[in-house]
Amino acid sequence: MKSFIEYIVSIFKGVWTLLVGMKVTAKYFFTPWNNVTQQYPENRDTLVMFDRFRGEVIMPHTENNEHLCTGCGICELNCPNGSIEIISKSIITPEGKKKRIIDQHIYHLGMCTLCNLCVKACPTGAIVMGQKFEHAVWDRALLTKVLNQPGSKIAEGVKE
């Protein structure tokens, strides 16, 4: 008899736990305004990434097409994946001195793991992390970028 009562009680207890679970899901079913889905491509305009978000490495330029990169190559040394290549060239300054400046700051986005070491190591703060995250392209070659814009030059007063 005792085991029979236990059997009956176990049925009711089991059903009760199921009903408690159903209450939780029902609560969310009947409060659809709490839905968490974001309609991604449509909400592009309102979608703001956090300012520290690491999307890609970029080199900011001023209106005069000036950047801060001296071409020292520290970022290249710090990159664990070899996704940065610095090509520098020699020029003769107006004072007549020979000087090495940046020719091309090549950045392979496809190899980059966005670890932030290059940005952290840069002595002049020439490269920063950009917030763009839509990087899909049709051709792998498009993932190799030249960060310094054509015709750009180093800003005045940047310490070597």
Binding site: F50, R52, F53, R54, T113, L114, N116
Partner: peptide, 20 residues
């Protein structure tokens, strides 16, 4: 994402302290 800059591959602790 707000503090470390990434959601999963955070790379936040570095030898000697933190990234930011």
């Amino acid at each position: 994402e707000e503090t470390c800059g990434a959601r999963m591959t955070v790379s936040y602790s570095t030898p000697g302290g933190l990234m930011f």
